[in-house]
């Protein structure tokens, strides 16, 4: 009773880079520069440390350890030199939370109009969490959810509210 139905942990130290380009043309160069395959539509590829998520038909999000951001930015700039592309550091524009535990799905289901149980193992879903934009994908033992930096307090609050003890979604 006393335990939250899932653990909500703010994630620090993440770097994020938005890459906008013609993926069919520049995909190989991007893959080589970041060391990850270009994800299929609505998927995320990952090597455990970095992830490359499909955000839109001409947009990818590279998620990586913060200290690797500068190097990755310049690798991408070099790889896409001459290509019509936009590469920007958005590390400071985002807030990230890990929602873990056996009932992490319930927390997502309370906030997002998207079925977390239907998310493939490598799926990335852009949607909203309550009243703000968010995206989530699977991590070991749960989900990682990202939103905007300015709403970090709000996101933390609604995630913790959704995880309050005794509020599992399984029928009572």
């Amino acid at each position: 009773m006393a335990d939250a139905i899932a653990t909500v942990t703010p994630v620090e130290g993440l770097g994020m880079i938005t890459i906008r380009a013609d993926l069919s043309r520049a995909g190989d160069a991007i893959a080589e520069a970041v060391g990850l395959a270009v994800p299929a539509v609505t998927r995320i590829t990952s090597d455990g440390s970095r992830g490359l998520g499909w955000m839109s038909p001409d947009e990818l999000l590279l998620v990586l350890p913060r200290q690797e951001t500068a190097e990755a930015l310049s690798m991408l700039e070099q790889a896409l030199a001459g290509e019509h592309a936009l590469i920007v550091d958005v590390s400071d524009a985002r807030a990230a939370f890990d929602v873990t535990g056996p009932h992490a799905e319930d927390v997502i289901a309370k906030l997002c109009p998207a079925d977390p149980t239907a998310l493939p193992p490598d799926g990335l879903r852009r949607t909203r969490a309550a009243q703000t934009a968010a995206a989530f994908w699977r991590i070991e033992g749960g989900f990682r959810l990202i939103g905007f930096r300015s709403t970090a307090d709000y996101l933390g609050l609604i995630l913790r509210n959704a995880a309050i003890p005794g509020s599992r979604l399984a029928p009572r």
Partner: peptide, 8 residues
């Protein structure tokens, strides 16, 4: 039609 998501 771009991402195939059935959005509400």
């Amino acid at each position: 039609p771009y991402c195939g998501v059935q959005a509400e």
